[in-house]
Write a protein that binds this DNA or RNA. Structure first.
Ligand SMILES: [Zn+2]
Ligand SMILES: [Zn+2]
Ligand SMILES: [Zn+2]
Ligand SMILES: [Zn+2]
Lengths: 138, 138
DNA sequence: TATGCTATTAATAACCATTATCAATAAGGA
DNA sequence: TCCTTATTGATAATGGTTATTAATAGCATA
């Protein structure tokens, strides 16, 4: 009925520490590469399993964004994200009054709406530069 | 260099017609089921291939969220979407002044932001009802 | 209408992120 | 220290999507 007791294993600790000091919103396999530096025998399944546990207990945020792979974030204060259309890199965007949306109480088909997410899209500096040099040559 | 000429095949036409008269934001395989009624020998690969072509030529919108199946929409006028947290059903939410976000010109790390997407989350009428009857019994 | 080029197809295999399985291990309360 | 069971590493399985390939069919041109 209620969820099992959560133990603090060495793997879980190292995963959480690494995610907390990475601000790149890494994918599971990027985090796997980082954690393996410290725990060479850790398995990718353990990364996925722990990200799931930590997400469900609210210690980590899973970014439900467009794109192929899921990304994770240990920064829990409310903020938005931008994603680069070319390379998929994700960065933070602070919340402002201009990026705040009023929740519609109910959609026309009777949905009860209780949350929303804003996702920005654009180009990171590197891809923007590359795009410029590709199109500038006549 | 430039994309090849787009031909109008029977399959492509039927796919587009069916998507245009479905307002349920179907997944590829849901659309596959619908199209097979008319073209029994169509293949799932053809559905995916055409949805990709039609998306890239702007005749169809692809709604992608990580972790869940992509959904497609032939309604091209600007609007938002709500997704049911339980069953994944997607419905339209009209754009209003309250759901309009001002684009930040640039993020702090130099991203050039040129678009955004608002996605609402909640419960569809069916799942909301089910949730009520599950939790109401003492 | 016939011809040629090639975009598109059906069928199928491959891909790849994520989950499930399972015997062995270890966290942590008693 | 002992016991329960959450967690692990290894590995197989899943499932949505993409790639491959020989055959077919749009469609521009003669
Ligand atoms: Zn980029
Ligand atoms: Zn973030
Ligand atoms: Zn629902
Ligand atoms: Zn829609």
């Amino acid at each position: 009925m209620n969820s099992p007791v959560q133990r603090m294993t060495r793997q879980r600790m190292v995963i959480l520490e690494h995610l907390r000091q990475m601000h790149s919103h890494p994918t599971a396999d990027e985090l796997y590469d980082a954690v393996r530096q410290e725990l060479p025998s850790v398995s990718l399944g353990t990364i996925y399993r722990n990200l799931d546990v930590l997400t469900r207990s609210g210690q980590v945020h899973k970014l439900e964004m467009c794109g192929v792979q899921a990304r994770f974030d240990a920064e829990l204060s409310p903020h938005h994200h931008v994603r680069c259309r070319d390379c998929g890199r994700v960065d933070d965007v602070p919340m402002t009054a201009e990026s705040t949306v009023t929740l519609p109480v109910e959609s026309k088909s009777g949905f009860q709406i209780d949350d929303y997410r804003v996702e920005f899209e654009g180009h990171c500096p590197e891809c923007a530069a590359q795009h410029r040099e590709t199109t500038s040559v006549g």
